[in-house]
C-alpha cells in the first residue's frame, strides 16, 4: 500500500465521476505535496469544480481513490468531517452568509467546536476576538466589520470568503476562481494574498486568468475532459501542443 502512495497531502488516483453517462472526471490522478501551491487550469466543463466536489465530499466518485495525508480515505467521509480534517473550500460563486455581519461570518468560520451544544453555550473569548481582528486585517475588511456581508462589493465578498477559510485554519485550501469578476488591481492583490497564505499551508487554485497564474508563478496542472493533460511550469504547460489545441488556442 505505502509503496504506491508517496508522501502526500492529497492523493487522487484514477478518479472517475459520471453524470448520466457523461464522464465529468475520467481516471483523474494527481498528488499535492504538503505546503504546495498549485494552479489548475482547463477549459469550461473540464471537471475542475467536480474535482473539488469529490475532494470535499459533496460528490462521491464512481471509482478511484482519494486520500488525505496518505491514509485518510476521503470517499467515506461527509462534508463536515472533511472540513474538520482541515480542508477548506472557496466556491466558484462567492458564498458568504449575507444576512450576517462581516465579523459574524469570520466568527462562524473560526476553527472551534462545531457541535450544537458547544455553539449554544459559546462565548467569544479574548483570544478568538483577537484572531478575528487579525484575519479582518489580512483581508482588509476591518473598516466594514459591522456591516452585513450582503452590502459588500463582489470583490470584497471574495476576500471575505478567503478570510473565512483562513479562520478555518485548513491544511489544504481549495480555491475555485478567486479573481472572477475582480478588477486588475484586486486581482494582483489576491495573488499576493494567496502566496502569503500558501506559506503556511497547501493551496490549490483553479483559475482561467492567465495573468493571475503568471503572478502566482507556480506549478500548473491543465485538465481537459476530466483528466490531466499536462503538468509543470506555466511555460512548459502553455507550450504543450495538446494544451494549445484544447484550451489556449480556443
Amino acid at each position: 500500500m505505502s509503496e504506491i502512495k508517496p508522501k502526500s497531502l492529497l492523493y487522487l488516483d484514477n478518479v472517475s465521476v459520471s453524470f448520466d453517462g457523461f464522464k465529468a472526471l475520467n481516471a483523474l490522478s494527481f498528488v499535492i505535496a504538503p505546503g504546495e501551491l498549485r494552479a489548475i487550469i482547463g477549459p469550461n466543463g473540464a471537471g475542475k469544480t467536480t474535482m473539488m466536489d469529490v475532494i470535499t465530499g459533496k460528490t462521491r466518485p464512481d471509482e478511484g481513490a482519494v486520500f488525505f495525508e496518505d491514509n485518510i480515505d476521503l470517499t467515506t467521509r461527509d462534508e463536515a468531517d472533511i472540513a474538520r480534517l482541515g480542508i477548506g473550500r472557496k466556491f466558484q460563486k462567492p458564498t458568504v452568509f449575507e444576512s450576517h455581519t462581516v465579523w459574524d461570518n469570520i466568527e462562524l468560520a473560526l476553527n472551534r467546536k462545531r457541535g450544537t451544544f458547544a455553539t449554544l453555550f459559546y462565548n467569544l473569548s479574548k483570544g478568538d476576538s483577537a484572531r478575528i481582528e487579525e484575519i479582518l486585517e489580512t483581508v482588509r475588511l476591518t473598516a466594514r466589520k459591522d456591516e452585513l456581508a450582503a452590502n459588500l462589493s463582489h470583490g470584497q465578498k471574495q476576500w471575505l470568503e478567503i478570510g473565512m477559510l483562513l479562520a478555518q485554519e485548513p491544511k489544504l485550501l481549495l480555491v475555485d476562481e478567486p479573481v472572477a469578476g475582480m478588477t486588475d488591481a484586486e486581482t494582483a492583490d489576491t495573488a499576493i494574498l494567496l502566496r502569503e497564505i500558501a506559506k503556511t499551508r497547501a493551496v490549490v487554485v483553479v483559475e482561467h486568468d492567465m495573468g493571475f497564474i503568471r503572478d502566482l508563478g507556480v506549478r500548473v496542472t491543465c485538465l481537459a475532459e476530466g483528466s490531466v493533460l499536462a503538468e509543470g511550469s506555466l511555460e512548459f504547460v502553455s507550450n504543450d501542443p495538446r494544451v494549445i489545441e484544447n484550451y489556449l488556442g480556443r
Binding site: A80, A83, G88, T95, F97, S99, A109
Partner: peptide
C-alpha cells in the same frame, strides 16, 4: 438558512 452548503464546508452539520 442563507447558504447551507457553506455551513457544511465550514464543518457544521
Amino acid at each position: 438558512r442563507d447558504a447551507e452548503s457553506r455551513t457544511r464546508f465550514l464543518g457544521y452539520r
